[in-house]
Structures are given as structure tokens and as C-alpha cells.
Design a protein around this nucleic acid. Structure first.
Length: 930
RNA sequence: GCGGGCGUGGCGGAACAGGUAGACGCAACAGACUUAAAAUCUGUCGGGAGCAAUCCCGUGCCGGUUCGAGUCCGGCCGCCCGCACCA
């Protein structure tokens, strides 16, 4: 017996697959009639951050299992790979290392491609591209122009989220707890002229597709997150006209428009409040310095959970009053810090009895609290709102024509009345806002627009595409901000309309735009347009999309909108890009930080945080810059001193008794263990697949990443686990190797008519394994599929013809040899999607035809799965006491008789009367006695 | 605060649709092989009582439904995720 050597065997098969072009997807056929069915498997393409870590391997191994399985099932499979190559890390690297973002990106791509290829993924590399290639982004620019033409893209002045560290605008989706999703810096508000995609136009369709069956193959939790994000609510938009003879500012003669989902509570209104960002507030502030101060103060307050919790409800009373649509009340008008400009109309009517915030506000400013909803059992004489608003169900009272109605009836009646009065309309409101795509960055897709003083904003003519990023020396990136802004040569162009000097748009597109259509380009590349329609129609939607849950909202929502926009432009025929979605868990690992300086010299002073810089930014400093670790230093206030050490790679660690240390430049420094987190380059808690592959091979790494844990769950990397996977590789090889050429002379599609009991038993085991593994792969239960393969392998050893003393298959008895050949072939095929190199080597050894990756997936023979006798557990009063072995088709009476005759049953019913015998066919027998 | 999910051995996790709890793997322990180690193979492996056959307890906690509950229902405790001043 020879030991299995992945270091030789894995590259050998990779070379043979390449030579045979085994994973090239066939293009769309002329006619679909009688054509081979097709299947598009896609894992979210990686950002080329530097190196692949084992977390990537898990992700791509999952897709590869599906791709290889579907190929074996006879599909024309498309399984491509590419690079989400624009983005800020490249610019940050340029800032730190002085390398050009492009150089940095391309060298990362080279490295990562080589690493991925080593994993033996069944990828059609001929379709590879990076989003930073002009061949890709020029078509993105072309689509941008189309979107602009069709009013899907537009420009507006808007209040934006400004990241002071990255010096760029962030989409709402990129602001987490009031901080930039990447930099972690507190986000500021600024007004800028920005490009937007009109995604709110499709809000209703994006929402209804979640529920009408178009996304049946998506996980419920993702759909729920998107539903909440789109945030549909129905209500009433109505105007409150001014009263009292005070002249409102110009443009507000018609009053203030508010939005409410509870028009039934109109009789409970006691004030009107507008957002500090509302135009009315701005207009009134012109002659009111105090109001200006108030507004400025409101805009400073963060939007984090903490800030909101602490923020007191505050208002500034304007010298304005409105009337009330249903009676002669006057309502004071406030600018209030809790009213959001982004939602509804940026103005509300306050109903303190029915809303906690309004109540807090009313109590503070001593405003009336008219009660309007009476709970079912409450007495109208004594029911009183004190410090808690009543938001539950009940009957309307003190509400004029609405008295006695339920809330639902009241809402309908109030809307009808307001519409009749011409004061407003029932309206559906969405939380979703248009997608701001402008980024003040260099390393992105240039927005094809030109600003002309005479003609305004003019599209770059299609013939002038692509708008290429200019050659930019690496030093340029050391200065914060966008080098495009400083590049007058590039910026200055003649206006396409009037020919006078004009300037280019220097914003580039959000990188989420790049990833919103790459799947279509993979499927249908073309030289003269974004996608080739015939191939796009053939391949799309992606049959199986796989990626992290962290993209549940942003990427997946944008891609869904982009697909609709492309369809509207006649580029695609589908609405939904991803038929089935699987969100896989992350690979997590403990983090480690060095405690003392690298050079071992006296610790320098700690670093003082002087501005809005976040701790996160500081933690990225190189090793040696700081002196001590503080894991609780996540939030650092200005002026405070932080002490942090550098992150340490797991493979740099040395065990020093119970402590961990790291040796750098001859000094041995202590290391502190940190929290278990998602593997990431920045925290250095990564395990390289190269090291694993060097020791155990890619197959063992793949196998381990898919075993044990359900794929949707996070897994913690352990070195011990991969050794178990390596043992499995060896065990399979040991089972196959002695059976050289066992397949020769057998046609597995025609089993022998006569087969002895041992052969039949083996075949049952084999076919049960086929059925189980197939079902598990179909349902993304890779951990269970792997457990079943282990069971199969364990069972093979115990099943008679396989465990002959001489260890060699007996070819003397034809039927027996057939059963063995079948078992070994099936074993090879079942492991093939997981450990493809091992499987090819086994297949060749067994004497199989061609590649195992091209052999048709085995089919379970249902007839073989039927058992003649079954074992039934027998319970007495719900406790298992024994088992019976009985004919599978035995009737209830026979089962009952056999059960009652058991010695254990008699012992446990001794002295009792049997009241009832429950026989569940094929399942269980329960004897009830007392 | 709102919405969703989860809680099973030392660990990762199985248990189809209410029917044998702990499959499979990891770790651990014992044994075989070896001069020895590694590798490999065999066995044990939830807790307790017993020489044993066997019995009792056990799926976060309390209660319920059922012949039968990890699974269903009610109430609690804990953890995780998403959203969040959304009118």
C-alpha cells in the first residue's frame, strides 16, 4: 500500500482538468428545444484584499460542491470567478505603502488567483474579470448614461453622511450606529450635490417580490431584513394651514404638510413639529439667530443608539400657529430634534396621548394631552394618561365624528374626510431612500458627466467612453482627499455641447454599483455592450447564489434594483437576479495582540486622540507604535490616551507555559488573547489555506471546512479538526487502492440478476448512502452529507464481502464483485464534490472511464432501499424496554403480539393491566399499562 | 423599544412530519503493532447505582397537551442577529 500524497496528486489533476478544459461552460445553444439543462452557481466574488484565508475556502468550497454535483447531474454548469477590485483599501494601502492602488490591487489578484486555483475549484477561469478593468467599467458608464437618460439616475443637493476619516460620502446603509461602516468614524452631516439612483421608484416591486413567490429560494431572515429596510407604511399626508394672521415665510402659504400613520388620532393633536433640517426651519432661521443656534446644535447630535437614548426631546417654538381641520383649535409649531427629515414629509402633528415621544415633548413644554383612545375595559371617567402614552387597541372618544369607532375604522374615516376636504391624500410611505452613489474617491468607476458653466451637467457622449482613470503617480495618494480633484489636466475637458472649457465630474461610483451587475457580465460578456442578451437570457437568473449574511441588505437589494433597471433599458429579461440564495456562516478565530513594543525598548508614551479619529483607526497602526493592549478601548473620547499593541498572526505565536508570546527582532514579547472574531486581514486572525494545503492538501482543507458545522453557521477554526479530515482522505485511499481496476469488466448500470445475501446487503448500504448524500447536498446540509459518507465508509468495512481477511476483493464470485465495485465507485463519486483530487485518483485506480467529475451522478435504486425486516422499539408507558425484529409488512396484530411476548415487556407489565397498545407502523410500539 | 432566531455530552453537532436522544467528527482514555515515538488499527466515552442482567436521572428553568415531548402550547431565564426618535 502506498501513502496518499496530495502534494503530487493535486497539481496533477488540476493540470489534467485544465488541459481538458473540464469546467468551461458551454454557451447558449441556438435553440432550447432538447438542450442540456443549465445551472448557474455563483459565490459572491472576493475583494482582492491581499491573500485568501480559510474563510474564503469555506465559501468557495460550498459553491464548488454544488457546481460539481450539478455537473455530475448532467447540467451545463456556469461557475465563474472574478474580482470586486475597486475600493478604498487600495487607496489606504497607497497612503501607507506608497504603492499605486492599481498595482496593489493587481498584485493581490495575482496572489489570490494562484491560491484559489490551488484549491481545485471547478471554475471557468476563461470568464474571469476584475471590476477595475476598463473593459468592465466602461459598460457600467454606458449603463449610467442610460439610467440618466431614463431618469433612474439623477443629481440633487442633499444632506449627506460625511465620513471625516475616509473623506467621502456614505450611503445610509453604510452608516452603522452613526459611524462609518469602514472607518468607524463618527459620521457628520453635510450638504453636497450628489448622484442618486432612483431605487425608491421600485420600492413596491422590490417589496412585493419578497412575498409573491419570486424569491421562494431565499432565506426568510434575509427577506425579513429587506422588508424592514424598505419599511412600507400606509397613512395620510395632509396640510395644516396657518392661523392667527401671522404671515408665514414665502413658499409656505399653504401650511405645513405632515405624514401620519394614525389619522384616527387627529383629535388628539396638540402641536406641530418640523425637523431641524426642514425648509421651514431654515426659512424661519433667517431672521432668528437663536433658532440658527438650535438647529446647529441638533445637527451635531449623533444618530447612534446611545445618543438617541440620551437625547432629550427638545423643541424651539416658532412664531407660527396652525389651525385644526376638524375644530377651531390652534396648534403651536415647533422645530423639534426628534423629527427626521428623511422620513415622511419631515413634519408631524404631535398626539401626546398616543405616542410616547410626543407625550414626553408635551409634558416638557406643558402642552395639552387630549385623550382619544379608550382601552376596552377602561372607564372614560377615570382613565388618564400620565407618563405613558396608550398605544394599544381601543375605541375612539373625544373625537367628534370618529367617536365610537375602532382604530382601523377611524383611520379609514379620517382619511376619507381629509380627502373630501381637499387637505391631503392617503399615501404609502417607504423608509427606503434613493441610493446615493457619488464617492469622492479615486479608485472607482468614474461617473461619465461633465460640468459646463453654460450647459449645466452634460453626459459624456457614448463614443467617448470609457472615461478612464488618469495615470496618477503613487505619491499623489499620500494626500488625503481625491486626487482626481487635483488633476487639472484630466478634469478640464471641452463641453460636449458647446465646446467651451468645462470640467469632468470627479466623483466615482460607489463600489456597490460594480457588484450590482457582475453576475450578468459573467454570464454574457460582450465586446460592444454591457451584456449579450442571448446568453444573459440563457443563464439568468443565477440559480444558486452563495455569500455572507452581511450582504443581506446592501448588495442584495442594490443588485435586485439594478437588475430591474437593466431590464427597463432592454438589457435583461429578468426582474430578480438570484433565484436561490444561501447565506453561509463565517470562519472565526481568536485574535491576538502584542503587549510590548517590538524593539523591546522603553515604551513610548501613549497616543493621544485629538479629534474625531476613532479608536478603530488607531488600531490599524503598525506593530510597535503603541505600548499596551486595551481591548475595552473601543470607544475613545477626544483627549484620552490609548495604549494598543499590534495584531499578531496565529502562526507567529509561541506557547510559553500557559502564556502566549511572539518573537520579533530577537525580543520575546507577551501576547494577549482577544475576542473570537470573523477572520480578517486587519485583525490578522487568519489562517492561510496554503499552509494547510502544504501539510494536508486542498482536499483535506475543503473537507474540514464543510464537515461538522451546518454551513449557515459560524465555525471556529481549529487545527485539530483538519487532522481528522486528513485521516479521512487516507482511509478512503486505503479502501480504494487495493481494489485496483475493480470496475473493469463491470457495467454498473446492469446489476446481476442473481445476488447472494452478502452482496444484497452491501448494495442496500451503497444505495442508502447515495440517497442520503444526494438529499443532503440538494438541501445544503454538507455536514450531514459528510457524516453519511463516514457512516458509509464505516459500514463498508463491516459488510461481508468487503471485510474479507485477505483484504482483496474477490472477483471469483461475479455478483459479489459487482457489489464491491459498485460500492467503491459510489464512494468515489460521493466524495468527488468535496475532495475532487482524491476522487479522480481513486477513479483512475478503480479503472473508471474518463474523469470522475464528468461521470454521471449515481442514482439510488428505490427497490433496494426497501427492507424485508425492520427493528421496532418497544416502549412500556413511554419508556423504551426492548426491540423487536419483524417483517416490514407485518400487520398491527402481529406486531402487537410480538411486542407483548417480549420478556422485558412482561417484566414491566407484571402486576399491571395492559390498557392499550399503540402501534405506529414502521416507527414504534407503545404499551400502556397500569 | 420593535422584529427574528437559538439554548442537546468535554467540544462541533445529529434526531425526517410528535415516535429508540446523543448519528458523524474532534478531544480524552485503554489496548494492539513498535526497542521507542509518530502514523495506523481496535475498544470505551451524558450522569448515577450495581459483580452483572438491569434500573434510575437527563435536551436552559417552571408548568401544560399527549399513549409518547429535544420537537407542540403557556410563562420565565440566558445568548445571538437585524432595525431603530420611521410619526
Amino acid at each position: 500500500m502506498s501513502r496518499y500524497n496530495p502534494k503530487e496528486i493535486e497539481p496533477k489533476w488540476q493540470a489534467r482538468w485544465k488541459e481538458a478544459d473540464a469546467f468551461a461552460a458551454a454557451p447558449a445553444p441556438e435553440s432550447m428545444a432538447g438542450a442540456q439543462p443549465n445551472y448557474y452557481v455563483l459565490e459572491m466574488f472576493p475583494y482582492p484584499s491581499g491573500k485568501i484565508h480559510i474563510g474564503h475556502v469555506r465559501n468557495y468550497a460550498m459553491g464548488d460542491v454544488i457546481a460539481r454535483y450539478k455537473k455530475a447531474c448532467g447540467y451545463n454548469v456556469l461557475h465563474p470567478m472574478g474580482w470586486d477590485a475597486f475600493g478604498m483599501p487600495a487607496e489606504n494601502a497607497a497612503m501607507q505603502t506608497g504603492a499605486h492602488p492599481g498595482e496593489w490591487t493587481w498584485s493581490n489578484i495575482e496572489a489570490m488567483r494562484a491560491q484559489l486555483k490551488r484549491m481545485g475549484l471547478s471554475i471557468d477561469w476563461s470568464r474571469e474579470f476584475a471590476t477595475c478593468e476598463p473593459e468592465y467599467y466602461r459598460w457600467q458608464q454606458a449603463m449610467f448614461l442610460k439610467f440618466w437618460e431614463n431618469d433612474f439616475a439623477y443629481r440633487k443637493e442633499s444632506l449627506v453622511n460625511w465620513d471625516p476619516v475616509d473623506q467621502t460620502v456614505l450611503a445610509n446603509e453604510q452608516v452603522i450606529d452613526g459611524k462609518g461602516w469602514r472607518s468607524g468614524a463618527a459620521v457628520e452631516r453635510r450638504t453636497l450635490s450628489q448622484w442618486f439612483f432612483r431605487i425608491t421608484d421600485k420600492a413596491e416591486d422590490l417589496l412585493s417580490a419578497l412575498d409573491d413567490g419570486r424569491l421562494e429560494g431565499w432565506p426568510e431572515n434575509v427577506k425579513l431584513m429587506q422588508r424592514n429596510w424598505i419599511g412600507k407604511s400606509k397613512g395620510l399626508a395632509m396640510r395644516f394651514g396657518f392661523a392667527g394672521g401671522i404671515k408665514p415665510p414665502a413658499g409656505f402659504e399653504d401650511g405645513i404638510e405632515v405624514f401620519t400613520t394614525r389619522p384616527d388620532t387627529l383629535f388628539g393633536a396638540s402641536f406641530i413639529a418640523v425637523s431641524p433640517d426642514h425648509p421651514l426651519a431654515a426659512a424661519m432661521a433667517k431672521d432668528d439667530p437663536k433658532l440658527r443656534d438650535f438647529i446647529a446644535e441638533c445637527q451635531k447630535t449623533g444618530t447612534s443608539e446611545e445618543a438617541i437614548e440620551k437625547a432629550e426631546k427638545r423643541g424651539y417654538r416658532l412664531a407660527l400657529e396652525t389651525g385644526h381641520p376638524f375644530d377651531d383649535r390652534r396648534l403651536p409649531v415647533y422645530v423639534a430634534n426628534f423629527v427626521l427629515i428623511q422620513y415622511g414629509t419631515g413634519a408631524i402633528f404631535g398626539c401626546p396621548a398616543g405616542d410616547q415621544r410626543d407625550l414626553d415633548f408635551a409634558r416638557k413644554y406643558d402642552l395639552p394631552v387630549p385623550q382619544i383612545v379608550l382601552p376596552a375595559d377602561a372607564d372614560p371617567a377615570t382613565f388618564a394618561i400620565e407618563d405613558e402614552a396608550y398605544v394599544g387597541p381601543g375605541t375612539l372618544y373625544n373625537s367628534g365624528f370618529l367617536d365610537g369607532l375602532t382604530i382601523e375604522e377611524g383611520i379609514a374615516a379620517a382619511i376619507e374626510k381629509i380627502e373630501e376636504m381637499g387637505l391631503g391624500d392617503g399615501r404609502t410611505q417607504y423608509r427606503l431612500r434613493d441610493w446615493g452613489v457619488s464617492r469622492q474617491r479615486f479608485w472607482g468607476c468614474p461617473i461619465p458627466a461633465i460640468h459646463c458653466e453654460t450647459c449645466g451637467v452634460v453626459p459624456v457622449p457614448e463614443k467617448d467612453l470609457p472615461v478612464l482613470l488618469p495615470e496618477t503617480p503613487a505619491e499623489e495618494f499620500k494626500t488625503p482627499g481625491n486626487p482626481l480633484d487635483r488633476n487639472d489636466d484630466w478634469r478640464t475637458v471641452p463641453c460636449p455641447k458647446c465646446g467651451r472649457p468645462a470640467r469632468r465630474e470627479t466623483d466615482t461610483m460607489d463600489t456597490f454599483v460594480d457588484s450590482s451587475w457582475y453576475f450578468a457580465r459573467f454570464a454574457a460578456p460582450a465586446d460592444d455592450r454591457p451584456v449579450d442578451q442571448k446568453n444573459a437570457d440563457y443563464w439568468l437568473p443565477v440559480n444558486q447564489y452563495i455569500g455572507g449574511i452581511e450582504h443581506a441588505i446592501l448588495h442584495l437589494l442594490y443588485a435586485r434594483w439594478f437588475t430591474r433597471a437593466m431590464k427597463a433599458c432592454g438589457l435583461l429579461s429578468v426582474d430578480e437576479p438570484f433565484e436561490n440564495l444561501f447565506t453561509q456562516g463565517m470562519v472565526v478565530h481568536e485574535t491576538y495582540r502584542q503587549i510590548t513594543p517590538v524593539d523591546g525598548s522603553a515604551p513610548p508614551d501613549g497616543v493621544v486622540v485629538t479629534s474625531a479619529k476613532s479608536a478603530a483607526e488607531l488600531l490599524d497602526k503598525p506593530i510597535g507604535a503603541f505600548v499596551r493592549v486595551d481591548f475595552d478601548g473601543a470607544a475613545v473620547a477626544a483627549g484620552q490616551t490609548v495604549h494598543v499593541g499590534g495584531w499578531v498572526l496565529p502562526d507567529q505565536l509561541e506557547a510559553n507555559g500557559p502564556d502566549l508570546t511572539v518573537s520579533v527582532n530577537g525580543s520575546v514579547d507577551p501576547v494577549q488573547r482577544g475576542p473570537i472574531e470573523k477572520m480578517s486581514k486587519s485583525k490578522k486572525n487568519v489562517v492561510s489555506p496554503d499552509d494547510i494545503a502544504d501539510t494536508y492538501g486542498a482536499d483535506a482543507a475543503r473537507w474540514f471546512m464543510l464537515s461538522d458545522s451546518p454551513p449557515e453557521r459560524d465555525v471556529e477554526w481549529t487545527d485539530a479538526g483538519v487532522e481528522g479530515a486528513w485521516r479521512l482522505v487516507g482511509r478512503i485511499w486505503d479502501a480504494i487502492e487495493p481494489a485496483k481496476n475493480a470496475l473493469k469488466g463491470h457495467d454498473l448500470s446492469t446489476p446481476p440478476a442473481e445476488i447472494d445475501e452478502a452482496g444484497a446487503a452491501l448494495r442496500r448500504t451503497t444505495h442508502a448512502a447515495i440517497a442520503g448524500v444526494t438529499d443532503d447536498i440538494e438541501n445544503f446540509r454538507f455536514n450531514k452529507a459528510i457524516a453519511r459518507i463516514y457512516e458509509f465508509l464505516n459500514a463498508l468495512k463491516k459488510t461481508p464481502p468487503m471485510n474479507r481477511a485477505d483484504g482483496a476483493p474477490a472477483n471469483s464470485v461475479r455478483a459479489e464483485a459487482f457489489a464491491q465495485a459498485e460500492a467503491l465507485a459510489v464512494l468515489t463519486q460521493l466524495v468527488a464534490p468535496f475532495t475532487p483530487h482524491l476522487a479522480e485518483e481513486c477513479w483512475e485506480t478503480l479503472g473508471g472511464e474518463g474523469f470522475v467529475c464528468e461521470a454521471p451522478w449515481p442514482e439510488a435504486n428505490a427497490a433496494l432501499l426497501k427492507k424485508d425486516t425492520i427493528r421496532l422499539p418497544v416502549q412500556v408507558n413511554g419508556k423504551k424496554r426492548d426491540e423487536i425484529e419483524i417483517a416490514a409488512d407485518a400487520d398491527k396484530a402481529a406486531v402487537e403480539k410480538a411486542a407483548l411476548s417480549l420478556e422485558a415487556v412482561q417484566r414491566h407489565t407484571d402486576g399491571l393491566t395492559v390498557r392499550k397498545v399503540v402501534v405506529v407502523p414502521g416507527r414504534i410500539v407503545n404499551i400502556v399499562a397500569n
